[in-house]
Amino acid sequence: QVALSRTQVCGILREELFQGDAFHQSDTHIFIIMGASGDLAKKKIYPTIWWLFRDGLLPENTFIVGYARSRLTVADIRKQSEPFFKATPEEKLKLEDFFARNSYVAGQYDDAASYQRLNSHMNALHLGSQANRLFYLALPPTVYEAVTKNIHESCMSQIGWNRIIVEKPFGRDLQSSDRLSNHISSLFREDQIYRIDHYLGKEMVQNLMVLRFANRIFGPIWNRDNIACVILTFKEPFGTEGRGGYFDEFGIIRDVMQNHLLQMLCLVAMEKPASTNSDDVRDEKVKVLKCISEVQANNVVLGQYVGNPDGEGEATKGYLDDPTVPRGSTTATFAAVVLYVENERWDGVPFILRCGKALNERKAEVRLQFHDVAGDIFHQQCKRNELVIRVQPNEAVYTKMMTKKPGMFFNPEESELDLTYGNRYKNVKLPDAYERLILDVFCGSQMHFVRSDELREAWRIFTPLLHQIELEKPKPIPYIYGSRGPTEADELMKRVGFQYEGTYKWVNPHKL
């Protein structure tokens, strides 16, 4: 086992960053958080920038500027975001240094004079007029057009580079997404736009490419001749908990499936790229999406959770019991969808996408189930092999396979070949997804960000279904809070070829 401390991990990262040409360590950078008073800024962006600063992973002359409508001070920003920093008493001095680099400007999102004030403020910072500028839009999409237009007109660096990070949702359907994309691309070049999907920053999602293309053993079996089906799962054990009003506007397909799960599907299904260059990788992902037809209604199961009468606390409440959810809402909190990649490698292999709230566990994984062994000599005792990439929690890679049961006879039983990170790298604290992705933006690497043509294809696949749901308002199937979801989803999976045995229990190697 390799035991690495946080300091050692960050030392390795620093070495990698400083050796590259793309990370300008000594240049002045300004990180501007648009929507600095909001939840995302408070819980994710400010803490992430602090962790990067604490670990010495930001360029040395980096300033952080918050911008929002609320009249706040840096002290206010500190008060609301610091509880999420997880700072230790030993880091007190470092924390003071961090907040000394912070400033805040209040202004409207659609007022040109406010942006001119913001620009004057940035120019007044040390070497601010020639600094590289990175704008993070932690804002609702309704203000994107006004904000990007004003940034472009008043706040661009004339000497350094300018980059803009856009948070999902990128529209509600193909038409609104196209409108937003066309607007942003009329102001910024594609190499300046970073559409963030934080799932692409997760260690195991990034590991998929290495697993596939750096190991000879997987190449020959990664196709329709050997793989019976692919299941991509995202499960949350909690409901909307008072935030249903926002969720109800989008629903589970827009929230998770059309982005996170579809991105994971691309990494499983794509061909080997010409290189690890950002556009070479994204070219292959677009090719996969172009091979997927629009979702067919007979390959869809929609569910909505109801309270568990035997549960406790939140578990007793259904989705419609959330006071922020519109009365009688038919918005799905669970969806199972089957897609097919219609190309030579994957023809006929079902890709089953499942996601839901208020389920029995927290889990995100990719599961490849292989065909049955031909010419069975073990009297149907063999179960199908599976390769599982567990994204969260407890990152893991393992192969479910058959071995001989101890004893006199040739009785096979299920076991696993474990390729888990935790076994080799004991207690290594890896940077989280937002840390990686923000560092990628500083480096100018777009590999783990969504390109406009990729986004367009993703919406093309799901828009007809979303429009049909909005028009017909089908009643989702009720499922109990804390269950596996509607049984109809299991029946759909069985119908397209997935075999669920229920006889195997994964042993978490992190707890051995």
Score class of each variant (00 low, 15 high):
A489S: 15
L262R: 01
R390I: 06
G407P: 05
Q446F: 02
S415Q: 15
Y425N: 15
K290L: 03
V366D: 02
S329R: 04
T463Q: 14
N360M: 04
A315Q: 11
D432V: 12
A336T: 10
N308L: 09
F498K: 14
K429V: 13
F498Q: 15
D322E: 03
I480L: 12
F449M: 05
E435S: 14
E491R: 08
L387A: 03
V397H: 03
L302F: 11
V301D: 01
L387D: 01
K357L: 10
P393T: 04
K400G: 05
A336L: 08
S483T: 13
F409L: 15
H371I: 12
S293N: 09
E271L: 01
R367K: 14
P486Q: 01
C443S: 14
K505T: 12
L267I: 13
A332Q: 05
K290C: 05
G444V: 00
R495V: 07
P474Q: 09
G356W: 01
N385Q: 10
L368T: 02
L439G: 08
G497C: 15
Y305W: 12
F409T: 15
F334R: 01
S452G: 11
R282E: 01
A297E: 10
P474H: 11
N298S: 14
L302M: 11
C382L: 13
T276H: 04
T503I: 14
K404T: 15
S275K: 06
V450C: 15
N423K: 07
K426E: 09
Y340E: 06
L492W: 05
G348I: 01
D322W: 05
L339V: 09
E284T: 04
E284L: 05
K287A: 10
I377P: 07
R345A: 11
L437D: 15
G303Q: 01
K383W: 13
K383A: 14
D310C: 10
I438T: 03
A458K: 10
G502P: 15
K494A: 12
T276L: 09
A315E: 08
Q499Y: 14
N360F: 01
R354Y: 07
W346A: 00
N298A: 09
E470G: 06
D432S: 11
Q499M: 13
L320W: 11
G497R: 13
E314D: 10
V341E: 01
T403G: 09
K317P: 09
P476E: 00
V337M: 12
E472T: 09
Y481P: 04
Q499H: 05
E312R: 13
R345I: 10
V295A: 14
L359Q: 05
S275H: 03
K426I: 12
V300N: 01
C355M: 04
M493W: 08
E342D: 13
L265M: 13
A315R: 09
F449T: 04
C266I: 04
K287E: 10
K363A: 11
N360E: 05
V325Q: 04
H510C: 13
T331N: 09
W346M: 01
M402R: 06
A315L: 11
R456Y: 14
H467R: 15
L455P: 02
P393H: 05
T330N: 07
L437W: 07
T399I: 11
D432C: 15
I469M: 14
L265K: 01
R424Y: 10
N298Q: 07
L492G: 01
T420F: 15
M493Q: 11
E488W: 03
C266P: 10
Y500M: 15
T333K: 01
L359K: 01
R424P: 15
T399K: 03
T399Q: 09
Y305P: 02
V428D: 15
E413N: 09
P323L: 12
Y421L: 12
K363C: 13
M447D: 05
Q392I: 12
L465A: 12
L465E: 01
G485C: 05
Q263C: 09
Q296E: 08
N423I: 04
P486Y: 01
N299T: 08
S483R: 04
I469P: 08
V288K: 04
A335Q: 01
A396V: 15
L492M: 10
V281H: 05
E414I: 10
Y500F: 13
Q392V: 12
G485K: 02
T403F: 14
F442R: 00
V295Q: 03
P273I: 00
T316Q: 14
N298K: 12
D321K: 06
W346V: 02
G482H: 05
K404M: 15
K383T: 13
R362K: 09
L353R: 00
E294I: 13
M401H: 11
T324A: 14
E344S: 06
H448E: 12
T463Y: 11
N508H: 14
G375Q: 11
S445A: 11
Y398R: 10
D322K: 06
F409A: 13
Q392E: 13
L339P: 01
